[in-house]
Amino acid sequence: MSVRAKFKVVSTTQRKHWDIQKGNIHEIQLQPVVGDSPENDRFYAATPSGAISLQTVNDEAGAQFELGGEYYVDFTKA
């Protein structure tokens, strides 16, 4: 069984990694979507609160998360 949620990027920041050779650390903060569309209303009814906090040193991965962008998150038991 899996669960799908929909989250919005509310913050993106970059800072230098302590090991300078590894470049930047990208920090991405996401929160569940609220309103703005019938689909978002349905997701909000199921997940009214929560947070996801990600950090990556992969520049390509970090660039995928645009501020204000909405993303589906699928949770599947491993």
Rank of each mutant, 00 (worst) to 15 (best):
A63F: 11
A46E: 11
V10W: 07
D19W: 01
V3D: 02
N40L: 06
T47I: 08
Q64W: 15
H17W: 02
F65P: 12
D41T: 13
T47Q: 12
M1K: 05
K16S: 13
Q14H: 01
N40W: 01
S11Q: 08
E60A: 13
A5W: 08
I20R: 05
Q64T: 14
V73H: 08
S53H: 10
Q64P: 13
Q31L: 07
V3R: 02
A45M: 04
G35H: 03
L67M: 07
R42C: 00
N58L: 07
V33Q: 08
V57G: 10
Q31W: 06
Q31V: 09
V57A: 01
V9D: 12
S11M: 02
F75Y: 03
Y44Q: 09
I52F: 11
Q29I: 15
A63Q: 14
V33P: 11
D74R: 14
K22S: 05
Q29H: 05
E39N: 14
V10M: 10
V34K: 15
H26W: 14
E70H: 09
N40Y: 10
T76C: 03
F43V: 01
E60L: 15
F43M: 11
K8W: 01
T76N: 06
Y71P: 09
D74T: 11
S11D: 08
V3M: 02
F7L: 12
K16M: 13
N24P: 06
H17K: 01
P38C: 09
D74N: 15
P48M: 04
Q14T: 10
H17M: 04
G68M: 04
E66W: 05
G50M: 11
S53W: 02
A63T: 15
S53N: 05
Q31F: 02
S2T: 14
E60Q: 12
S53V: 10
E60T: 09
K22E: 06
A46L: 11
G69N: 03
V10S: 13
R42S: 12
Y72T: 11
T13S: 15
Q21I: 03
V57T: 14
T47C: 13
A46C: 03
Q21M: 07
D41C: 01
E60H: 10
R15L: 01
I25L: 03
V9I: 04
N40G: 12
V34C: 08
T76L: 01
P32I: 11
A78F: 03
K16A: 07
P38V: 14
F43E: 03
D41N: 14
T12Y: 00
E39H: 14
Q21C: 00
G35A: 14
G23Q: 04
K8V: 11
I20Y: 04
Q29L: 04
Q14P: 00
A61F: 08
A61N: 15
D36E: 14
E27V: 00
P38F: 11
V9W: 06
V33R: 07
A46D: 12
I28A: 02
M1L: 02
I25W: 03
G68Q: 05
V9F: 10
S53L: 02
G62E: 08
A5R: 09
N58E: 12
K16V: 07
Q29V: 15
M1F: 09
A51E: 07
H26F: 13
F65M: 09
F43R: 04
M1N: 07
V73T: 02
K22W: 00
G62S: 08
